[in-house]
Computed example of a mutant assay.
Amino acid sequence: MKKKAIDSPYFAHSDAPYSHGILMNGMVFTTQIGETQDGSLISEDVYEQTKQTIENAERIIKEAGGTLEDVCKVTIYMLDMKNDFDKMNRAYRELMPNHPFPARACVQVGGMIDGVKVEMEFTAFVSQ
């Protein structure tokens, strides 16, 4: 199967060279930040950004025919793990299905788009 772009009417159009999500052979790949429908960040708060990030990923996965239950791997990039890890983890625990939780990696990075404190990559498997 060829890779297919996954779009959601929720997201504002962007001319940037990326897709909101990709579906290929039942695998869904999406990388999200905590932006709202108009393209602005939901908040400066990492808890709110994490919640919005997960909700954005859920939109893409849903467009591909899946749910957050289908997520098998999450990679999390953070600017400040020392001060923000607990807040991010609280939002993650509240929204991600936990039977079992997806495999996960969390790394601190040196920089991101202005105001972004957390960015997450999701990999899900959806039956076709």
Rank of each mutant, 00 (worst) to 15 (best):
P102V: 01
V71G: 11
T75G: 14
K87Q: 05
K82T: 01
L68A: 08
D80L: 08
L68I: 02
T75H: 15
N89G: 06
A103K: 15
A103I: 07
T75E: 14
D84N: 09
H99G: 02
Y92D: 03
A91D: 01
D86K: 15
P102W: 06
Y77F: 12
P97R: 05
L79M: 13
D84V: 00
F85I: 03
M96N: 02
P102M: 05
K82G: 00
F85D: 01
R90Y: 07
Y77S: 13
A64S: 09
A103M: 15
M81V: 07
D80E: 08
N83F: 09
N98P: 01
K82P: 01
Y77A: 12
G66K: 11
M78Q: 04
A91T: 02
I76L: 12
D86N: 14
P102I: 01
F85K: 15
D70A: 13
C72F: 14
Y92T: 01
C72I: 12
K82C: 02
D70T: 05
P102K: 10
T67D: 07
G65H: 04
N98S: 14
M81F: 10
P97W: 04
E69N: 13
M81P: 07
M96K: 07
L95W: 10
C72K: 13
M88C: 04
D86V: 06
E94T: 07
E69W: 12
K73H: 13
T75P: 09
D84I: 00
A91P: 07
D86Y: 13
K73P: 00
D86E: 15
M81G: 09
P97K: 03
D80A: 10
V71H: 13
M78W: 02
F101Q: 00
D84F: 07
T67M: 11
E69C: 08
V74Y: 14
V71Y: 13
M78P: 01
L79A: 04
E69T: 04
D70N: 15
D70S: 11
C72P: 03
A91K: 06
N83C: 09
G66N: 09
V71R: 15
F101Y: 12
M88F: 08
H99I: 00
N83M: 09
I76D: 09
F85H: 11
P100I: 02
F85E: 05
V74R: 15
M96Y: 05
V74M: 15
T67N: 10
L68Y: 11
N98W: 08
N98K: 11
N98I: 02
R93T: 03
A64Q: 07
N89F: 08
M96V: 04
M78Y: 07
F85Q: 13
H99E: 03
K82Y: 03
E69H: 12
F101C: 04
N83W: 07
L68V: 04
D80P: 05
P97M: 00
K87Y: 09
D80T: 04
V71E: 14
T67C: 08
